[in-house]
Amino acid sequence: MKICMLTSGHDIFDNRIYYKEILSLKKQFNEIYLVAPGEKDFVTEDGIIVKCFPKRKNWIDRFEPMNRMFKIAKEINADIYHAHEPDSFQVAVKLKKELGCKIIYDSHEYHPEGFAEHFKFGRSIIKKVIYLYEKHLGKQADAIISVNELLINKFKRYNNNVVMLPNYPVLNEIKIEKEYEKKPMFVYIGGLREDRGILKILEAIELIKDEDYKYLFIGPFETFDFEQKCKKFAKDRLRNVDIKFTGKIPHMQVFDYLKKAYAGFVLLQPTNWRYVNSEPIKIFEYMATKTAVISSNFPMFEKIIKNPDAGISVDPTNTQTIADAIKYLASNHGKAKELGENGYKKVLELYNWSVCEDRLLKLYNELYK
């Protein structure tokens, strides 16, 4: 069977698309293609054939990239096309009409809400229009994949073949032996944006700046202006604090930092509805590396890190409560270790990709039959 993944906005080596779904499918199927934004075609070390088209210049530049994606994907003539955004799935729908292939819509984000955020006015109308557009496309999918119960229930209203594949970590790629350093270290992993609580963390650090702790922010800044804002804050108000912004680093190198960390931050802000109703991969990655979690006190977050406790939930808008959580774990190494161990056990029992891999392979085998 020939499989083709389609993405218009994700990286070629996206954690979910490549390291989870594609490598899981590779265990049973030999011929797998990935059509994605990039500079040139190549074959990965895992034998995945990557076909590239130029990245779009901005978020509104969608028509020409999708035309190029369609031409490339049609030449591949796959049995199943697996798309990861509404616009790449539109390409899949067109391919189904022309080739008679099977198509999968993999929605691991709140696309209508996210698209509407680009507009200053009329967001509710735009969100509704995109929702109706997504619904129209989704009815034509042979299967829909998503990541949490909210999205699953939405898609079940108009498609009978919906499968939940949460963004759980792959256990066999993670080294879980902790190597704590003498100086307590705290990390943040992911894109650096204000609504992800980065400034709140910096402000909390200022409240305890006399304590000898280390802080790592691992990931790219969303904008140059926000980067300058954060670095100016650190320079002016955290002058003697051991703090580092690493930028984007290789996927596997992230775990080298995590195994030394006392705790990891997931302090998304309540101003963004999508964040409040998400299950961030960062939480699971922290837990999988025996790292305690300092998270926003959103119900979906607390459901993950409670029973048994794998971290501390705080009001993400309150810098004092964030500072208190940092100081508590830094001065109670045994508690930080206990929370990390609890999280790891929960990942072994429930929150790991092997559960999702079985569902994914079962879906593909059913579609191929």
Results as ranks from 00 to 15, higher is better:
112 P>K: 00
368 Y>H: 12
80 I>N: 02
266 V>S: 13
303 K>P: 00
73 A>H: 14
309 D>Y: 05
127 K>F: 08
302 E>F: 01
182 K>I: 13
192 L>H: 02
301 F>E: 00
327 K>E: 09
47 G>A: 04
318 N>A: 03
2 K>F: 02
219 G>F: 02
266 V>D: 11
183 K>Q: 14
228 Q>Y: 09
45 E>T: 08
361 L>K: 03
175 K>Q: 13
287 M>G: 05
8 S>M: 14
8 S>G: 15
289 T>V: 06
224 F>A: 09
167 N>F: 06
277 N>T: 00
78 A>L: 10
278 S>Y: 02
163 V>P: 00
313 S>T: 08
208 I>R: 09
258 L>G: 00
317 T>P: 04
149 E>T: 09
325 A>E: 07
16 R>T: 05
197 G>E: 08
46 D>L: 01
340 G>L: 07
76 I>V: 13
298 F>D: 01
160 N>D: 14
325 A>W: 07
222 E>P: 00
356 C>M: 12
7 T>N: 15
84 H>D: 10
356 C>W: 02
74 K>E: 15
226 F>Q: 09
336 A>N: 04
26 K>H: 01
105 Y>V: 04
16 R>C: 04
157 R>D: 13
110 Y>M: 06
137 L>R: 03
41 D>K: 02
61 D>A: 07
307 N>L: 04
3 I>S: 03
15 N>V: 14
307 N>C: 06
46 D>V: 04
25 L>R: 00
114 G>I: 12
101 C>K: 07
58 N>I: 08
3 I>G: 04
282 K>N: 02
97 K>S: 15
131 Y>R: 14
120 K>C: 06
124 S>W: 14
211 E>H: 11
25 L>N: 01
51 K>R: 15
254 V>C: 01
73 A>W: 15
328 Y>C: 12
352 N>M: 11
369 K>E: 13
264 G>Q: 05
35 V>N: 03
225 D>N: 14
119 F>A: 08
21 E>W: 01
81 Y>T: 06
73 A>S: 15
31 E>G: 02
41 D>V: 03
358 D>C: 08
176 I>V: 14
300 M>W: 07
329 L>P: 08
233 F>L: 10
323 A>N: 09
55 K>G: 11
366 E>Y: 08
284 F>Y: 15
196 R>E: 12
252 M>F: 12
289 T>G: 08
21 E>H: 05
187 V>M: 01
259 K>C: 01
10 H>F: 15
250 P>E: 03
222 E>I: 09
284 F>A: 06
275 Y>Q: 05
146 S>Q: 03
19 Y>Q: 01
10 H>W: 12
369 K>I: 11
226 F>C: 11
364 Y>R: 01
291 T>Y: 03
110 Y>Q: 06
